[in-house]
Amino acid sequence: MAKHRGRGVASVNYPIGMNLGGDPSQALVHATPTGKFVVTLSSIDLGQGMKSVTRQLAAETLGVPIEDVHVDTGDSDTGPHCMGSFASRGTHRAGNAVIAAAREAREVLLEVAAEELEVDPRDLELDGRGNVRVKGAPARTISVREVAQAAHFRRGKSISGRGMFLVPPSDVDPETGAMRPVTTYAHACMIVEVEVDDETGEVTVLSIKAAYEIGRALNIGLVEQQLVGGAWMGISHALFETVEPYYPDRAHGPVDFNTYLMPGPGDMCPVEIEIIERPALDGPYGAKGIGEMCATPPIPAIANAIEDAIGVRITEMPFTPEKILRALDAKRAAR
């Protein structure tokens, strides 16, 4: 009876978003009379950072401070269309729509500023601190707030923009059936080290090391947070979570957090992550998405590590002690 160590590898080629109906998302941007901006979206923030990233994208594109951007993701009944927060599509699909809407709003902003300053709008730029200035003549400047007031109360203009992102439809090749379901893929590679106790069948994950290629990390704190959280979820799927009973009777199935098993804070191994940035051609400032892919590689990597440790292949999740011990028994019996 002994503890055996093993190492397993898994790689991911992860499509961002989906193909149905072009997977569209829309965004609307408008300025308030005080020169603040509101982005209206139906893409919901469920903790993944949709609002933070939207603020960053809109502020960057408009050329205004991030504090001056407010994101309203209130209501999918009344907001501009979004397919939803899933398929790792939020940053990529909604993000592109936010940039398009912010660009259009920026154009109106510069038009009104040009009228106020009596210059050509092409000669204007934003300083990122809330002012519009004439290129090469930094003394000739007007605040965004003043521009917004001029637009609202004198020029009768709405500083606003509409954005829509639609994936170009891809037809199925009648000969081969081939199509291009998505435009962007993220990638990852993970190495997991485990220890398997051949007496109890228990698997302990000792370490996770992974590299993720995600286009561009728009918010590095949020990215790392999701990758670590995803590593935990992957371990949880691989080793613990199931709604199936442990015995043939469904009455033995889990009914609460005491019986629906998940790793606790003491079961979590160190997670080391490297982020590789290779901007996606059609991503918002090069970003792809990371949402779901971060929970996937631990599962095959752990299965491979178990096989490396004790020479048995477990093909059904979760890899419980019972399955490990039965597989070891079968292996012994075959000898």
Binding site: G47, Q225, V228, G229, G230, A231, W232, M233, F257, M262, G264, P265, M268, P270, V271
Partner: peptide, 8 residues
């Protein structure tokens, strides 16, 4: 219980 952060 935390579902999101991985506790670390």
């Amino acid at each position: 219980v935390c579902r999101c952060t991985g506790y670390l």
